[in-house]
Design a protein around this nucleic acid. Structure first.
Lengths: 220, 220
DNA sequence: GAGAGTCTGGAACGTTGTTCCAGTAACAGT
DNA sequence: ACTGTTACTGGAACAACGTTCCAGACTCTC
């Protein structure tokens, strides 16, 4: 049974997941259906179900595929602080390139993809000298922050399409709405509106990482 | 047109949203369909569409409803640090009670619910004396952390149902899987597995808030 | 009463995830 | 070369969903 021959045009979970990733990237989350997938693979829906239990498993596998590549790409041997920044930014960029990964990471609580990121963050916090009693909490804080920023960014990416021509138009439009808010109830937002259009998501994300890291190291 | 009389059994957006929240809380996200909603309101799907544009708007309205209540409940006049903790914990608890809110907050990037939370956090950071240049970044970091933790918690809540009888069983099962991981690739997770079963989600969440706050205040 | 607006309920449409199953390809044993 | 078994395929069929459509019912104004 192990050494069974394959047809030359054999379908496989790997080919299916790769095709799914391609569709997700080009057509978005709504573009991936078992029918479009079957069409791209020139087969029927039933054949796909032989290799994949259901759509959730397919999405989880696609997510794991992307995340595994990111985590593996982060060089070991960096000093731990830079390692954390590179890893976090890698996840951030991956989700920028594949917004559906952000959605998926928030849906799949203890999946393989998440564990890899958690390990990468936690291991480097150890190296940084965070006291053992606080390693778990600190790593969780970092992970939650990364996931929150990621999901938010993914949702944004999904939203840029309609209306605005480019990113600064888009943010300008949101800032304009903020300045129209009730001054008594939303003083902070009205002030922040000024900074919104020219802020850089990546820089802001990294600033948050540094903030949390400095918190990890100052708390005794 | 403004002073049009209402039938006594009149449908309204408010009644629809309230019924939707009830279904979401009792039956979960999958339980809310326009058919179940119409059945509970003893009407047809078309009647609902007269008051609500589509399901997205319905979910957004339900989310805003819950979040508005939470934000309003947080007493002003607290010292700002406690205010942030209470607000964040309020959002956390609300999502624990209504897991679907967590999912929704991550999907709706600049919705009214999010703005209220952002304002609450940012305003109190100002009072805390965070330098103006860092208020935007700090508030974003807090918000992203809250959202990440919230979404993760919501996903967990959705997952407890099958299998395990109670929470510590559930976490114990996950910890057991962590200890079976490859020791060379996952040293941190294997260590964290020991702490997982008895950790308290709320406490860990608050520890993360304190971590970020201390980071906000030490970064010059 | 007549007419106009507002609102209702349910039938109907197109699409989705999933199941089912008759059929085919490649092997192993004889 | 035949046969049976297993591994796999493709497409028809099903139930459920979000959404649209529209004939009617209600309630006001004239």
């Amino acid at each position: 049974m192990a050494t069974r021959a394959q047809r030359t045009d054999a379908l496989s979970k790997e080919r299916i997941v790769d095709a799914a990733i391609e569709i997700l990237d080009t057509e978005g989350e709504k573009g991936l259906t078992f029918r479009t997938l079957a069409a791209r693979l020139a087969t029927g829906a039933g054949a796909i179900y032989w290799h994949v239990a259901n759509k959730d498993e397919l999405l989880a596998a696609a997510t794991d595929g992307v995340v595994t590549r990111v985590v593996a790409d982060v060089a070991r041997g960096e000093n731990p602080r830079d390692g954390i920044r590179i890893l976090a930014l890698g996840v951030f960029d991956a989700i920028d390139a594949h917004p559906w990964v952000g959605t998926q990471l928030s849906r799949e609580p203890w999946g393989a993809a998440l564990l890899q990121i958690f390990e990468g963050l936690g291991g480097r916090l150890q190296e940084l000298g965070v006291p053992r009693a606080q390693q778990f909490n600190s790593a969780s804080a970092l992970l939650n922050y990364v996931l929150g920023a990621a999901a938010q960014n993914a949702a944004n990416a999904r939203l840029v399409l309609p209306g605005a021509t480019d990113r600064s138009d888009f943010l300008g439009g949101i800032a304009a709405r903020w300045t129209e808010l009730d001054a008594a109830r939303y003083p902070f937002l009205r002030q922040a509106a000024a900074e919104l259009p020219e802020h850089d998501d990546r820089e802001q994300f990294l600033a948050g990482i540094d903030l949390i890291l400095s918190g990890c190291l100052t708390e005794s």
